[in-house]
Design a binder for these strands. Structure first.
Length: 929
DNA sequence: CCTATCACG
DNA sequence: GACGTACGTGATAGGA
């Protein structure tokens, strides 16, 4: 028996997945995930070392899938089309697993166009012919076809179980040789093998036992007794035949490695020790007889650096002023794979900004600044400092910044992307953004601009960065960056690139540890270039129309002002809430004056003034009108004219990915997400947003997306049915609550139900609902109780969500985005109340935000695929996307856009409710609605 | 710089 | 029983 050769064939792919799911998300010192690699290496070790002589391998190979496209895709285009992508923290482990295999001196075998299963089949057949024993290390059911009495078996190393013909027959009810017939009938939803509807393993086994194979079954299908089954089989003959072909293993391939070359050798110690040491697999090093403290030198020149151990030394940063120095930095950067990167400009607004310099960091502590457009600190009067010619420097930098093998790490890199794209034609890629990493990791923990570079450096690295004011001055003495002397500029600018690189090293392992890599890589990073393009395109406005509106508003305001002053009996500043309050509630003695607890001033907000207006007081009515005009004039008409970029003649907003606690975007400078629409006067502003001639604006918005998500997340059958059937959701709610028929519903009752539906999304309270509807509080409480009675799932959702927030400290969206709720355990009940309502709202608002983000990353490629790249996405307003499209392409583009938006959850998720998108087009934004 | 107000989803 | 309360943003003007 000792002469008996025994080949072990390891199904590499399936094993990686199993190791990944079993082991915790370990990372090596470089922050690269290695959990699956560790599991894999351990298994190989076991196979080599621990099996006894009679069972163990004399020959061994690991088989991988080379690519996802194989000959089966040629046979059937839907094959494995539903396969979700592997988890993000598994992807970088694929090459490492191959490294591990080679470190053990075990051959890796893979072949473009065929699957690991086929390669395994080919080797199995070849070895069997030679009279060898074969063990397939896998638990994949497709491979069970190969099991054979006495000569071929399988080994499930996770369960430590051998699978022979008896085990196969137990599982499938037929001998191994017939397993292919069974698989063809059963189908496989994961691989998209159709099979026959309603046929599982039991039925398949019965049919194959009776008829022998699928062809005979098809030929004699009319003999089947059960009518439904007979019909299904007769209707699926094509599917059965294609399935039979798909599950069949291909074994005509010429072996790339001859059988004998797979002979198991003792792995040479040194490369193995180096591999194990590099990834910190200490227990295995010990087994190998190498003490981990005495681990050989690090394997790569890029020493794994402990971020905190490299001090910040500003004097070590280099100012690059010659072509030679720049060339040498570019060369160094090319080898480092991951480059810290930042740009300096003369303006915070990136559409107006001019590039002033670029900084690079190749490893923590090693960074430089390349000034490109610095002038003397006296401006153009003095002599400019020596620097590389801008064009020449950018020509040297462009290949680096566009090199697909060098990741450019920036903090808020969208800004840098735009500056370099704008007038320099450099498309920086691939990118990483440490601001977005910090945002997904800590969303909700910080407020305001706390994801910016300076606070992040303080928190994550314990480092105080040089404040901008320190180099550029403050107030009226502040200068633009091109006037900062090069030595100070270098300290400041190079530090930013250095910090970005260090933050990357700090965040990357945190992302993996918290399992937030997918959120970052799917919902944040890919949006950066998409938003950059939207901002760059901008949107056209009718300046003349805006100016006319502004003048009209000014006239009407002046008229109102005179009337208001007459009514008040004195002149005062209508725009001052304080003065207005004194007039209304002090001097005139109107009823209902509420003083705010904070400032002690009377409240004069819309609600208050409207209440007074109902009682026919003239002055508050006129103030309301005046306020509306003042708002429209200053915030919109005047501001939009001023925002038109003279270079492009369009308005370019800036979208922030890291602004909100829920995952929504924010728009600023100017904010184009709050352009008026609700009143007729306001809609006139929206009419000034126009398409270029020959084009139309196209608006595509999700209908009731948050309520649909509520129905799905809280699992409310009535809501789900209403959405499924296209029923008016608010009328349905009213009908359920008040027992009135949907037909001929009183609009006021529907209005109440609508307010309640929205209140629920906001984490309803009786007080809030009462105020919103202008009804007594006990009546509002009664409404809420009735709602909970009719839809008990809502209360369960609210309780479940609050509990999750308390126990884990965060809540999450359907796609895994987290919002931390630090105040959920506050002793102050008002703070706690806020946190609870925000916790209830965040999964709903945030899931909607995730969905439109997914759509936005897919829409441009989808349009391109249809030759519709002329349709350009311009704006996002939370549940709406605005495009500018050549008029003759609008219909086709609308079809593509609708499809992408409606299917944005797939393939990760299937909602219990349909998503519906309304599309409209028109010459203006108002008309597109 | 903070507060109040109001535009949007 | 009292406490204050709808969720998420950004821009503007007034006033300390």
């Amino acid at each position: 028996m000792s002469e008996q050769k025994h080949l072990y064939l390891v199904d590499g792919s399936s094993f990686i997945f199993r190791a990944y799911h079993v082991l915790p998300p370990l990372t090596n010192s470089e922050g690269i995930p290695t959990g699956a690699v560790y599991g894999f290496a351990n298994m190989l070790w076991k196979l080599i070392d621990e099996l006894n002589d009679t069972d163990g391998p004399t020959h061994l190979a690991v088989i991988f899938d080379a690519s996802s496209h194989t000959f089966r895709n040629e046979m059937y285009d839907q094959y494995k089309a539903n396969r979700p992508d592997p988890p993000e923290d598994l992807v970088p482990q694929f090459p490492l697993v191959r490294d591990a295999t080679r470190a053990f001196s075990v051959p890796c075998i893979e072949e473009e166009g065929i699957e690991a299963d086929d390669i395994i089949a080919c080797y199995t057949h070849a070895a069997r012919k030679e009279g060898w024993k074969v063990t397939i290390v896998s638990s994949d059911k497709d491979l069970m076809q190969l099991v054979d009495d006495g000569q071929v078996d399988m080994l499930d190393t996770m369960k430590n179980k051998r699978i022979g013909p008896a085990e196969v027959e137990e599982k499938f009810g037929v001998p191994p040789a017939k397993v292919g017939e069974i698989l063809a009938l059963m189908g496989d939803s994961v691989d998209n093998i159709p099979g026959v509807k309603g046929v599982g393993v039991k039925t398949a086994a019965r049919l194959i036992t009776e008829y022998g194979d699928t062809e005979t079954l098809i030929a004699r299908a009319d003999e089947i007794k059960q009518p439904k089954l007979r019909e299904n089989i007769q209707n699926s003959t094509e599917e059965i035949r294609i399935s039979r072909k798909l599950v069949d293993l291909y074994c005509d391939w010429n072996l790339t490695e001859p059988l004998d070359s797979l002979e198991l050798k003792d792995p040479p110690k040194e490369p193995l020790a180096e591999f194990l040491g590099k990834h910190g697999f200490k227990s295995m090093l010990t087994k190998l007889g190498v003490r981990s403290s005495g681990t050989p030198k690090p394997a790569t020149p890029q020493t794994p650096v402990n971020v905190e151990q490299v001090p910040f030394k500003h004097e070590d940063y280099e100012t690059v002023t010659t072509v030679e120095a720049l060339t040498s930095w570019v060369e160094e950067a090319r080898t480092c794979g991951c480059l810290g990167f930042d740009t300096e400009t003369n303006d915070l607004n990136c559409m107006r900004a001019e590039l002033v310099g670029i900084s690079l960091a190749t490893r923590p502590g090693r960074a430089c600044y390349v000034p490109l457009a610095h002038v003397s600190d006296e401006g153009l009067l003095g002599e400019a400092p020596e620097q590389v010619d801008c064009e020449e420097a950018l020509a040297l930098l462009k290949p680096l910044l566009e090199d697909p093998a060098v990741q450019k790490v920036g903090h808020n890199i969208k800004y840098d992307l735009l500056v370099l794209r704008n007038r320099h034609g450099i498309d920086v890629a691939p990118i990483e953004d440490t601001m977005l990493m910090g945002y997904v990791l800590d969303c909700g923990k910080h407020v305001g601009g706390q994801y910016g570079l300076d606070p992040a450096a303080k928190r994550e690295l314990g480092h105080e960065t040089i404040p901008f004011k320190e180099v550029a001055g403050t107030g009226r003495n502040q200068v633009t960056f091109d006037k900062v002397p090069l030595d100070r500029a270098t300290e400041y600018a190079a530090e930013d690139a250095d910090v970005a690189l260090r933050l990357y090293q700090a965040f990357k392992p945190r992302l993996w540890r918290d399992r937030m890599t997918t959120v970052y890589e799917r919902l944040e990073r890919p949006l950066v270039p998409v938003l950059a393009r939207m901002e760059e395109r901008g949107i056209a406005v009718d300046r003349a129309a805006l100016s006319r509106l502004s003048a009209d508003y000014a006239d009407r305001m002046a008229a109102l002002e005179t009337e208001i002053h007459e009514l008040a009996g004195e002149e005062f500043n209508i725009g001052s809430p304080k003065q207005l309050g004194e007039i209304l509630f002090g001097k005139m003695g109107l009823p209902g004056g509420r003083k705010s607890s904070k400032t002690g001033a009377y409240s004069t907000d819309q609600d208050t003034l409207e209440t007074l207006a109902v009682d026919d007081f003239e002055l508050p009515k006129k103030v309301l009108d005046w306020r509306q005009l003042a708002k429209l004039k200053s915030t919109y008409a005047d501001a939009l004219v001023a925002a038109v970029n003279p270079r492009t003649n369009r308005v370019h907003t800036s979208f922030t990915l890291a602004a909100s606690t829920t995952g929504r975007l924010a728009s600023s400078d100017p904010n184009l997400q709050n352009i008026p629409i609700r009143t007729d006067e306001g809609a006139k502003i929206r009419e000034t947003f126009i398409a270029e001639s020959g084009n139309v604006l196209l608006s595509a918005d999700y209908s009731q997306i948050e309520l649909r998500l509520l129905a799905h997340i809280a699992d409310i059958p009535q809501l789900k049915q209403a959405f499924e059937g296209g029923v008016d959701i608010h009328a349905m709610t009213a009908s359920e609550m008040f027992g009135v028929p949907v037909e001929g519903m009183d609009p006021m009752i529907r209005r109440d139900a609508k307010a309640i539906n929205f209140g629920i999304i906001y984490g309803i309270s009786a007080f809030g609902l009462a105020r919103n509807l202008g009804i007594p509080r006990d009546k509002a409480a009664d409404y809420i109780n009735r709602y909970f009675e009719r839809f008990p799932g809502i209360r369960e959702y609210m309780n479940r969500t609050k509990l999750m927030a308390r126990e884990k400290g965060y809540v999450e969206t359907l796609f895994g985005r987290r919002t931390y709720t630090p105040l959920i355990k506050s002793q102050r009940q008002n703070e706690r109340g806020f946190a609870e309502r925000a916790a209830i709202n965040a999964p709903i608002q945030g899931s909607a935000a995730d969905i439109i983000r997914r759509a936005m990353t897919r829409i441009e490629p989808a349009l391109q695929g249809e030759g519709l790249e002329a349709a350009r996405m311009l704006l996002q307003v939370h549940d709406e996307l605005i495009f500018e499209v050549p008029a003759d392409k609008a219909e086709a583009a609308g079809t593509v856009i609708r499809k992408v938006m409606e299917e944005a959850c797939a393939p990760v998720l299937e909602l219990d409710v349909p998503l519906v998108v309304d599309v409209g087009t028109g010459a203006t934004w108002a008309a597109a609605h």
